[in-house]
Amino acid sequence: MQRNNIVEKVKEILISVLEHEGFELTDDLVAADVSGWDSLTHMIIISSIEEEFKIKFKLKDLNKMRNIGALIDIISSKIS
């Protein structure tokens, strides 16, 4: 899958979980900059991504994930 396809799908998931589109999905975007993205919604976002891409994150993957760019990289490495 192309990187921009992954980005597009992640964006759809974020919009559906957070119920708004008030963010721009750049590589250096962090959760704290997005309204409503807290610990609770983070868990739902992560499980939605796992479902969508049919992957499973390790806790070690998650705690090294500092921004959207890192998230996309991890998804990309897991599905290839």
């Binding site: 962090v30 959760a31 704290a32 610990s39 983070h42 806790l59 705690n63 090294k64």
Partner: peptide, 15 residues
């Protein structure tokens, strides 16, 4: 840090 997702950052510290 305030801007981190707490549970995953905490696990990072523990580990």
């Amino acid at each position: 840090p305030h801007e981190q997702i707490k549970y995953s950052y905490v696990f990072g510290l523990l580990d």
